[in-house]
């Protein structure tokens, strides 16, 4: 505790004495953090849009023409017992035909010559959206295809796998870009603290000879890094809050579709960003100060 009070005095002296280089570092850190946040929020929002699209995604299970009503019931029971299936919709032959007629509209006459309904009855199944891994859907589909009374299972295979790929690619890009920016933030604090450390090299040598412990020597630098990261994070939080408020108030007025991309904006972001800044900056400072040898 005493160590902290002592170091704080030294830190405030340094923060004030080197205010320009500190301010520059704080601003760079806040820009970096804002970029990461923007990226992550974009990914989360895009992902939620994709998830919403995917909600409408389902399997269409076409039944055999000669399917018995017992078979239909047993299929329905199997589906409702399956936890992965959240919605079951039964489309009878008649309903299918009606829908077809509706779709065709004026061209309905094409169907005029039919004396028998050629359409099969079917089940439309909606799957849990977190199960939209194409491989899993494929497995589920072939499982259902082997059930008795089932003729064929169809689903938007291509569409699903491209959505899935986009979602995965976006996450990967975010992780890579976010990681790179975090490293950049750590490096910015690292170089600033390294400069301070070198400037005070003689003083540190003397302190070591007088009997200063490692923690006494290191703590001021780590605290300075912590404050840089924290302030950078707070500035970034304020900026994010400002931009978010501005866009949600103004832009949505003119561009309602923007709301689509701002579905979720948890308030925790305003706490996590400064914390992330602090942690990354302290890591940078730790590396800058390095090992202290007597």
């Amino acid at each position: 505790m005493k160590a902290f009070i002592y170091s704080f005095q030294s830190v405030f002296r340094s923060l004030w004495h080197e205010k320009w280089i500190n301010l520059l570092t704080i601003l760079s850190v806040s820009i970096g953090l804002s970029l990461v946040t923007a990226f992550i929020m974009l990914t989360i929002n895009m992902d939620s849009v994709i998830q919403r699209w995917a909600k409408n995604f389902g399997l269409v299970v076409y039944l055999k023409a000669n399917v018995s009503s017992a078979e239909e019931t047993s299929l329905k029971n199997l589906f409702s017992q399956d936890d992965d299936i959240i919605e079951i919709k039964y489309i009878s032959k008649e309903l299918a035909l009606k829908e077809l007629r509706a779709t065709l509209g004026a061209n309905e006459l094409i169907l005029e010559g039919l004396n028998e309904n050629p359409l099969p009855s079917s089940y439309e199944l909606t799957l849990k959206s977190n199960l939209l891994d194409p491989e899993r859907v494929k497995r589920k589909a072939s499982l259902i295809e082997h059930m008795s009374g089932v003729e064929e299972v169809q689903y938007g295979e291509k569409w699903l796998s491209s959505l899935y790929t986009i979602s995965k690619a976006m996450k990967a890009v975010t992780i890579i870009v976010g990681g790179a920016i975090f490293i950049a933030i750590a490096f910015m604090t690292y170089s600033t603290i390294k400069i301070f450390f070198y400037r005070r090299k003689d003083e540190i040598e003397t302190l070591k000879l007088l009997g200063a412990t490692r923690i006494f020597i290191r703590l001021p630098f780590l605290l300075e890094g912590l404050i840089i990261g924290l302030l950078g994070g707070i500035i970034s939080s304020l900026a994010i809050f400002g931009i978010y408020s501005f866009t949600s108030l103004k832009v949505i007025e003119f561009l309602p579709s923007v709301r689509l991309f701002m579905t979720s904006f948890p308030f925790q972001v305003y706490i996590i960003v400064p914390l992330a800044g602090a942690v990354v900056s302290v890591i940078g400072s730790l590396i800058a100060v390095g090992k202290i040898r007597y």
Binding site: K208, L209, L210, G211, A212, T213, R214, R293, Y294
Partner: peptide, 14 residues
């Protein structure tokens, strides 16, 4: 050990 050196030095004025 490295980390005990400071405690020795506190007994030694230089």
């Amino acid at each position: 050990k490295q980390k005990t050196i400071p405690y020795l030095r506190r007994n030694v004025g230089i």
